[in-house]
């Protein structure tokens, strides 16, 4: 029974579904490790999703039947730029203006939700258009491995990049001065400040990086996973990504584990219903969310939370 459900294609689908969560949650991890909670991820994702698709659509030659590499590159760059701008705006609001982070994030989300839809209406008159997104890239040799080949090595570039970010993030946070500064600022900004680390500068960096990765998360949906844009197409994924950071206890590998678990359960519940196994649809759809909530209950007992999370820093004179 289980081998019938947990097929290579289900696992591969789970890996793909995990991609946007991974980008967004890793970006959010950087911000939170430095003490800034950004609930606006969903809004930035939507902006990234729209603008990258727009760029790909504009640059791909009319009538092209296959992907056009310069257009895809432009799509990614545009998403990064939009993420950079929205990340900077978030940093201004949260770091410089010291807004209540729980509230300001909702504002950023609503801005992204509304703005992406407005642009969609203005640019495409709300017409759903499809683009030629990132194609699958088979890694030589590895992609021929039984099961593993299909699951891991026949994905597209944005999927590979998302998973490559996991060890990179671990390295930056744990093995570099920058990472040490980020953690110091998130744990005890006063002490970090006394040591000559600019809390403001570090937080601007992490929040802006978080914005860029959130925007890339959106792009990974619109130009790699589904290759279309629709209003509100992220359907709550940005909020799940924030939850995954708690789930993963602010560690890149924990976040990856959470994203994979959530997405695999999602792929599995789709498979269960495709197979016509008699499970109530509502219960099956709830499963990934339920699992995340349960895991969060256990995760919350951990003590790894950055001590200064959500607390604005004001330099004492």
């Amino acid at each position: 029974m289980i081998e019938n459900l947990l097929t290579a294609s289900v696992l591969a689908s789970g890996i793909r579904l995990a991609t946007p969560y991974l980008y967004a949650a890793i970006g959010e991890t950087f911000g939170q490790r430095s003490g800034v909670l950004n609930l606006g991820v969903e809004g930035v994702m939507l902006m990234g999703a729209f603008t990258s698709l727009w760029a790909v659509h504009e640059i791909t030659p009319v009538g092209a039947t296959s992907y056009y590499a310069p257009a895809l590159l432009a799509g990614v760059l545009v998403a990064l730029l939009v993420g950079l701008l929205m990340g900077l705006a978030t940093a201004v609001i949260n770091v410089t203006l010291q807004a209540q982070q729980g509230i300001s994030g909702i504002g950023i989300y609503l801005f992204g939700l509304g703005m992406s839809d407005l642009l969609f209406q203005k640019v495409f008159r709300g017409q759903v258009i499809t683009v030629n997104g990132f194609p699958k890239v088979n890694i030589p040799v590895l992609s021929d491995l039984p099961v593993l080949g299909e699951v891991f090595f026949r994905q597209n570039l944005l999927v590979y990049l998302a998973f490559a970010l996991v060890p990179a993030t671990w390295f930056v946070l744990n093995k570099t001065t920058l990472g040490l500064n980020i953690r110091a600022v998130g744990q005890n900004p006063e002490a970090a400040d006394a040591m000559g680390i600019s809390v403001t500068r570090v937080r601007y960096f992490t929040v802006t990086l978080g914005g860029m990765l959130a925007s890339l998360a959106g792009a990974s949906l619109s130009i790699s996973l589904v290759n279309v844009f629709q209003q509100n197409m992220t359907a709550g994924q940005g909020f799940i990504a924030v939850a995954l950071v708690y789930f993963g206890a602010w560690q890149a590998r924990g976040v990856m584990f959470g994203a994979l678990l959530f997405s695999l359960v999602n792929a599995l519940q789709l498979q269960v219903r495709t197979k016509g196994i008699d499970v109530p649809d509502e219960a099956a759809s709830m499963a990934p969310y339920l699992l995340t909530i349960i895991a969060l209950i256990f995760a919350s007992r951990r003590i790894d939370q950055p001590a200064a999370l959500t607390k604005p820093f004001e330099r004492g004179e």
């Binding site: 579904l17 197409m233 498979q271």
Partner: peptide, 13 residues
């Protein structure tokens, strides 16, 4: 609204 889930459902089929 979840396009990614619709895509995954299609993949499963």
């Amino acid at each position: 609204s979840d396009l990614a889930l619709a895509a995954a459902a299609a993949e499963a089929m």
